[in-house]
Amino acid sequence: MTPIIELNRTGGRTAMNRAILGACAAAIVFVPVAASAHPGVVGLTHGFASGWTHPFSGMDHILAMIAVGLFAAHMGGRARWLVPLTFVSVLALAGVAGMAGVKLPFAEIGIAMSVIVLGLAVAFQLSVPTLVATFLVGFFAIFHGHAHGTEMPESMSGLTYGLGFVCATVLLHATGVGLGIAIGRTGPATGRQLAQVTGAAISFAAIALLILP
């Protein structure tokens, strides 16, 4: 692959990432404004605000989404955007299924296991093909998305609520990717040690959440 083609692809990925974050930022600014300007639209602001804050209401969700970003940063290349994008996409689909009343057994255990496994993947600097990584995070995203969907009160706007938690998820993934890149820039030895400590801390926190009342 020539440097020019690689540069174009990198630029395209950067532009896409900026577009996603820009769309979320615009939604945060304009959705509440639109709601207040149209009082007949009931629950619009409440739906988006609740969806936005919901991923931050559980430490297991926060840790998993940051771990996805850390894992993606370690993978590098196209995995930096493809792994988080897979998680967000499956999360949204599973959320719709949860809203529709589709049952998913052992959802809470699946969420806890996702944090443990992803934390270990970060700690051990797991290197797998990008396709395998996307399947891994996509599988765990099913549990997180289903939990978000089933916990949404019926009175809220499903569209704006979904937009809120998708944007919050993107922010958490971006935080993880940024942290992972920063860790990688500390040098091979230091970076590996920091990754091990961070990943282990995420896994141990998940275990504590699983066994403590």
Results as ranks from 00 to 15, higher is better:
residue 159 L to I: 11
residue 158 G to F: 09
residue 35 A to M: 02
residue 189 A to D: 11
residue 98 G to P: 09
residue 205 A to H: 05
residue 126 L to D: 05
residue 53 T to K: 08
residue 121 A to G: 05
residue 84 P to T: 07
residue 36 S to N: 09
residue 160 T to A: 14
residue 21 L to W: 04
residue 151 E to R: 04
residue 183 I to A: 06
residue 93 L to N: 02
residue 91 L to V: 00
residue 159 L to C: 00
residue 184 G to D: 11
residue 113 M to V: 15
residue 137 V to K: 06
residue 113 M to P: 03
residue 196 Q to A: 12
residue 80 R to P: 06
residue 83 V to Y: 13
residue 213 P to H: 07
residue 46 H to F: 06
residue 7 L to Q: 13
residue 156 M to Y: 15
residue 103 K to E: 12
residue 6 E to C: 00
residue 134 T to V: 15
residue 22 G to Q: 13
residue 142 I to D: 07
residue 81 W to D: 06
residue 209 L to R: 04
residue 134 T to P: 02
residue 48 F to D: 05
residue 193 Q to A: 08
residue 143 F to R: 05
residue 83 V to S: 06
residue 67 A to K: 03
residue 167 C to I: 07
residue 156 M to Q: 12
residue 27 A to T: 11
residue 171 L to A: 13
residue 124 F to A: 02
residue 108 E to N: 03
residue 2 T to Q: 08
residue 200 A to R: 02
residue 115 V to Q: 03
residue 100 A to W: 05
residue 123 A to R: 09
residue 53 T to C: 02
residue 200 A to D: 01
residue 165 F to G: 01
residue 145 G to M: 01
residue 42 V to M: 04
residue 14 T to E: 14
residue 83 V to M: 08
residue 156 M to L: 15
residue 37 A to R: 07
residue 194 L to F: 06
residue 3 P to M: 12
residue 21 L to S: 08
residue 10 T to V: 12
residue 68 V to I: 14
residue 124 F to W: 13
residue 131 L to M: 14
residue 47 G to R: 11
residue 91 L to E: 03
residue 32 P to A: 03
residue 6 E to K: 11
residue 166 V to R: 07
residue 118 L to D: 09
